[in-house]
């Protein structure tokens, strides 16, 4: 059952990474920008959840507030930071993005304190379910359920609705999509809004799991998410999902087998380097930058 326990851990990590990394993939696919500041969006999502939950006593309200507020922040990043810089080379908005991330980390530190914020009441983190001898934590379960619901929902949205199909068309060929009456600016807003909402949910769930939101909460997931989108073949949502799950599982098993000389965070990069040597185009490799 030990290996099943590890798989549960790996899959729940993978689901968290997927919710975080898909936002990056969407932005990369549409604008060819490495949206490093997505980590700040993730962190903001976590802060809103914990602060609103503590203020109102309701986790549900915390998540609702986060899903509403965080996308506004994501859209504002596009509108105020990226849009004016789009006329320059893609590394210009990327550097601006790194700058925003550093600024936001310090802002979180100053506004919400060095020590981080914990939930006043966090029953989920201490609730477990046993299935045979396999233990599921409630938050792990929530991560998996959220990811499944979200990605099934996204799949339905992008294949069954005109708006979703138009969105994919814009990612594929923005100018031609405009020729058919699709407003590419609105698509960009939608893109940032959805990516940010996903990051908010992931951030909130990680906050519950850690029972701690500190200023650096986004840092680790951010560079892992960057590794994931490269592994996933830059711009491919399907590749990102596969890479997220693979990384989650590799980390979960890797930690116990090679964890004595290589920590979990390094595994992501080892996997990245190994894959890039074997398959420079990533897992799916349909499209490269």
């Amino acid at each position: 059952m030990y290996y099943v326990d590890l798989a549960v851990t790996g899959i729940s990590f993978g689901c968290m990474y997927a919710m975080m990394a898909v936002g990056l993939t969407l932005v990369y696919g549409l604008l060819r920008i490495l949206h490093v500041a997505h980590a700040a969006v993730f962190a903001l999502g976590a802060y809103v959840v914990v602060l609103v939950a503590n203020a109102t006593g309701s986790l549900i309200l915390g998540f609702l507030a986060s899903i509403l507020i965080t996308p506004l922040f994501g859209v504002a990043i596009y509108r105020l930071l990226y849009q004016p810089l789009l006329k320059y080379r893609p590394d210009v908005p990327m550097i601006a993005s790194v700058g925003l991330l550093v600024l936001m980390q310090d802002a979180f530190r100053i506004v919400f304190g060095e020590q981080g914020v914990t939930f006043r009441s966090n029953p989920l983190a201490f609730t477990t379910f046993n299935l045979g001898s396999v233990t599921f934590n409630a938050v792990q379960l929530a991560l998996v359920i959220s990811a499944v619901v979200i990605f099934v929902g996204l799949h339905v949205f992008t294949t069954r609705t005109r708006m979703g199909i138009g969105w994919r068309a814009t990612v594929s060929r923005p100018q031609i999509a405009t020729s058919f009456g699709i407003d590419s600016i609105k698509v960009r807003y939608l893109n940032f809004a959805i990516g940010s909402a996903l990051a908010a949910i992931a951030g909130g769930l990680v906050a519950l799991l850690n029972n701690l939101v500190d200023p650096s909460i986004g840092a680790v997931v951010s560079y892992k998410a960057l590794a994931i989108i490269v592994l996933g073949g830059l711009g491919s949502v399907r590749g990102t999902l596969i890479a997220s799950l693979v990384l989650g599982l590799v980390e979960a098993y890797g930690t116990v087998f090679i964890g004595d000389w290589l920590d979990r965070d390094a595994i992501a990069f080892l996997a990245l380097i190994a894959l890039l040597m074997i398959r420079p185009q990533g897992f799916t490799g349909a499209r490269t930058a």
């Binding site: 326990d5 851990t9 233990t135 701690l212 680790v220 979960a252 116990v256 920590d263 979990r264």
Partner: peptide, 21 residues
Amino acid sequence: NKYSYSLKDRQFGSIVASVKR
């Protein structure tokens, strides 16, 4: 058994599973 983790890490699922074992 001995396990190690990075200072940046906050998720210990694998270590927890191993300690259980």
